[in-house]
C-alpha cells in the first residue's frame, strides 16, 4: 500500500506543476458552465412546466459538473498506458514488483484528483456568489450532503474502473485511438455529461439508470440537488457499489489474461 501512496504523491505533485493549465481550465470551465446555463434558460423560458427539475437545481448540477469535471471527464485516457501496451514496453513494467492494474488505477486517480483539486474551489466559490437562480445553491440537507460525498467517491472510482477497461482494449486492437473516441462519446452521453439524465425522455430513463454510466457523475450530483433522496438515493448508491465491484473484477481479470498473453508472445 505504501508504494501506491508514494506513487500517488509523485503524480499528484507533478499534476500541480501545471499552473497555467489550471488557470486556463478554470476559465474554460467557467465559460462552459455559464453558456450551458444560458442555453437551459432559453428552454426554461419556453415552458417551465416541461422542466424535470427546478432551474436553480439545474444550475447547481452544472456548476458541480464543471467544478468536478476533472474527476469525471470521459476523455481522459493515459496515453502512456496505451503507448506502453502498443509498443510492447509493458514487458518492462512486468519486471517491477507491483501489480500493473493497481498501479495504473492509482495513477489515473492521482492525475484526475490533482487536476480537480486545483480547479474545483475557484469554480465553486465563483458559482456560489452568482445570483440565484444562476448560481450554486446549498445542498438539500446535511444528510444529503454526506450521501453526496460518499456517492462522489464511488462515482469517481466507477469511472476510473471503467476507463481501465478501455485502456485494456489496447491489448486486443491495433487502433486504441478509435476505441478511445468511441468510449468517450458513449460515456459522456450516457453519464449525463451533455444533458442531465432527467432530461432524457421518460421511456428511456429506466434503461439508462441500469447502465454503469449513470453511476458516475449523475448519482452524486442528483443527490446533492435533492432530485434523488431518501430510499432512492440509497438505492443508487447501492448500484454504484455494485458497478464498482463488477468493473473492478472484470478489469483485473482482463489484465491478468492479457498480461499472460503478452508474456507468452514474448512482448
Amino acid at each position: 500500500m505504501r508504494k501506491y501512496i508514494s506513487f500517488f504523491r509523485i503524480r499528484f505533485i507533478a499534476g500541480l506543476q501545471y499552473r497555467a493549465a489550471a488557470w486556463a481550465g478554470i476559465a474554460t470551465q467557467f465559460a462552459w458552465g455559464g453558456m450551458n446555463i444560458l442555453m437551459f434558460r432559453a428552454f426554461y423560458e419556453e415552458g417551465s412546466n416541461a422542466f424535470p427539475m427546478p432551474f436553480d437545481s439545474l444550475s447547481t448540477y452544472i456548476w458541480l459538473q464543471q467544478a468536478f469535471l476533472a474527476l469525471f471527464m470521459a476523455w481522459f485516457f493515459d496515453t502512456e498506458i496505451f503507448d506502453s501496451i502498443v509498443s510492447g514496453n509493458i514487458a518492462y513494467e512486468l519486471c517491477r514488483p507491483i501489480n500493473i492494474y493497481n498501479m495504473w488505477f492509482t495513477k489515473n486517480t492521482a492525475v484526475r484528483l490533482s487536476k480537480a483539486v486545483l480547479r474545483c474551489l475557484p469554480i465553486l466559490i465563483f458559482a456560489a456568489v452568482l445570483p440565484s437562480p444562476y448560481g450554486m445553491s446549498l445542498p438539500h440537507s446535511i444528510g444529503a450532503f454526506l450521501l453526496f460525498l460518499l456517492s462522489m467517491i464511488l462515482g469517481f472510482l466507477v469511472i476510473v474502473a471503467f476507463s481501465m477497461l478501455v485502456h485494456a482494449t489496447a491489448f486486443f486492437t491495433i487502433s486504441p485511438k478509435g476505441i478511445r473516441v468511441l468510449a468517450t462519446s458513449v460515456i459522456e452521453f450516457f453519464s449525463g455529461g451533455l444533458i442531465p439524465i432527467p432530461f432524457f425522455p421518460d421511456w428511456i430513463q429506466p434503461v439508462i439508470y441500469a447502465l454503469p454510466f449513470a453511476s458516475m457523475q449523475n448519482t452524486p450530483f442528483l443527490i446533492y440537488t435533492g432530485y434523488l433522496s431518501g430510499i432512492e438515493a440509497l438505492k443508487s448508491i447501492g448500484l454504484q457499489i455494485l458497478w464498482l465491484l463488477v468493473l473492478w473484477c472484470v478489469g483485473k481479470l482482463i489484465f491478468r489474461y492479457a498480461l499472460k498473453r503478452v508474456v507468452v508472445q514474448g512482448g
Binding site: 487502433s175 485511438k177 478509435g178 468511441l182 459522456e188
Partner: peptide
C-alpha cells in the same frame, strides 16, 4: 492504418 482510420471516423460520427 485503415482499421484505425475507420474506427476513428465512426467515433467522430458518434460524438
Amino acid at each position: 492504418y485503415k482499421a484505425s482510420f475507420f474506427m476513428t471516423a465512426v467515433g467522430q460520427f458518434l460524438i
